[in-house]
């Protein structure tokens, strides 16, 4: 991709608008980014997007910020990362800076509350839609191990509230062990065939 000012501007505008709509926690930005960068622009493919989210997860800090840094880096190097991070941080920064002057009135406002209640349901729909899409993508690998990881990770993350870092580390270890075993087996099969 050509690193022109136009590209950086596009990265900034994209992350800025996405960030302005990430109500309800960091994961909401994932489906939004997926829609924008995978489906609309075609800059990143579905699998790489999952890899990026995994990397964003393995670092400390807000997932939305981390994900935007890595996408920016992928599209436009270190400058791209800075631009997309700025785009992600600015909307909440400006909004909270303004609200901090009259936050009590805002918090107790009935109209704001009804809009938020509706939006919560909308956010849930967006996430469920994204999860279906990503699960279908993983299922395409037709690997039993992937199904097991998906199931086990959900159980420990949702019901047992296990820290995400441990889930990430454990699943990466399982993936590495499975690869080592497979490669050993392939090697043995090749040597046996000679």
């Amino acid at each position: 991709m050509k690193r022109t000012p136009a590209l950086y501007w596009k990265i900034f505008i994209s992350t800025f608008t996405l960030s302005a709509f990430t109500f309800g926690g960091g994961y909401v930005i994932v489906p939004l980014m997926q829609k924008k960068f995978v489906n609309q622009y075609g800059w990143i493919d579905e699998t790489e997007m999952l890899d990026m989210v995994a990397i964003a997860q393995s670092a400390p800090g807000p997932i939305a910020v981390n994900a935007s840094i890595i996408i920016g880096y992928r599209l436009g190097g270190v400058l791209g990362a800075m631009v997309s991070m700025l785009g992600t941080v600015l909307p909440p920064f400006v909004i909270i800076a303004i609200i901090s002057f009259f936050y009590q009135a805002f918090r107790d406002n009935y109209v704001v509350a009804t809009v938020m209640r509706g939006m919560q349901a909308g956010v849930a729909a967006v996430i469920v839609d994204a999860v279906i899409k990503m699960a279908v993508n993983v299922a395409k690998e037709k690997s039993v191990l992937s199904y097991i990881i998906m199931f086990a990770a959900f159980i420990v993350a949702y019901f047992f509230d296990v820290n995400v870092v441990f889930v990430i580390l454990a699943c990466a270890a399982v993936g590495i062990i499975a690869t080592v075993i497979r490669e050993k087996r392939n090697k043995a099969a090749k040597e046996g065939g000679k």
């Binding site: 999952l50 990503m134 992937s146 990466a172």
Partner: peptide, 9 residues
């Protein structure tokens, strides 16, 4: 390959 399904979950 271990992380992708985990991220979905």
């Amino acid at each position: 390959s271990g992380l992708r399904p985990a991220v979905v979950s």
